[in-house]
C-alpha cells in the first residue's frame, strides 16, 4: 500500500474517533503534522487493579500500515507481565504477520490488516485486565503477578495513584 493510502486510512480513523469517541481511551496525534505518531490515553478498566489509572502511550505506525503493525509504548510507568520495562506492549496481535517456521505463533494470532487504533486499544485494555504470563515481556512483573499477587496489587496501586498525579 502506498504511503498516501496508509496516511489516508489513519486520517480516517482519527476523524472517526474524534467524532465518535470510544469509552475507555482517547486518541490524538503527538504532532499534528505527523499522522504516523499517535498519543493515546487509556483509562484503567473498572473492576481491575488498574481502575482509576490514566495511562499515556504512544503508537508508531510504519509506512506499510495496515500491512504491518504499529509499535506501542507506554509513556506512563507501568507494571504488567505483557509490558516491557521500557513500556513497550507485547501482545501477539502487534507481532509482524506471517507464519514463522518454528510455529511459535499462528499466523491467525498475529497482526491482521483489519486492525485499527480502536481494536488495538481494546485488546490492550483487555490485556491490562487479563495478563498472559506465558510469554512475559517483563519477567519480574510476571513472577510477582503469579507468586505474590498482593505485592503486585500494591505496586500497581501506587502506579495508578502516580498516573493521576501526573495529569
Amino acid at each position: 500500500m502506498a504511503h498516501d493510502q496508509s496516511s489516508l486510512l489513519l486520517r480516517k480513523q482519527l476523524r472517526d474517533l474524534n467524532k465518535n469517541p470510544v469509552e475507555g481511551f482517547s486518541a490524538g496525534l503527538i504532532d499534528d503534522d505527523d499522522i504516523f505518531k499517535w498519543e493515546v490515553v487509556i483509562i484503567g478498566p473498572g473492576d481491575t487493579i488498574f481502575e482509576g489509572g490514566v495511562f499515556k502511550a504512544h503508537l508508531t505506525f510504519p509506512k506499510e500500515y495496515p500491512h504491518r503493525p504499529p509499535k506501542m509504548k507506554f509513556v506512563t510507568e507501568m507494571w504488567h507481565p505483557n509490558i516491557g520495562p521500557d513500556g513497550s506492549v507485547c501482545i501477539s496481535i502487534l507481532h509482524e504477520p506471517g507464519d514463522d517456521k518454528y510455529g511459535y505463533e499462528q499466523a491467525s494470532e498475529r497482526w491482521l490488516p483489519v486492525h485499527t487504533v480502536e481494536t488495538i486499544l481494546l485488546s490492550v485494555i483487555s490485556m491490562l485486565a487479563d495478563p498472559n504470563d506465558e510469554s512475559p515481556a517483563n519477567v519480574d512483573a510476571a513472577k510477582m503477578w503469579r507468586e505474590q499477587p498482593d505485592d503486585f496489587k500494591k505496586k500497581v496501586g501506587r502506579l495508578v495513584r502516580k498516573s493521576q498525579d501526573e495529569l
Binding site: H67, R68, W111, L112, V114
Partner: peptide, 20 residues
Amino acid sequence: KDCIDDWLMRSFICPSCLEP
C-alpha cells in the same frame, strides 16, 4: 486486488475470517 495481494505475500490467511 492491490490491497489483498500485498497482504497475502506477507500472510496467507483471509484477514476477515482467518481461514488459511
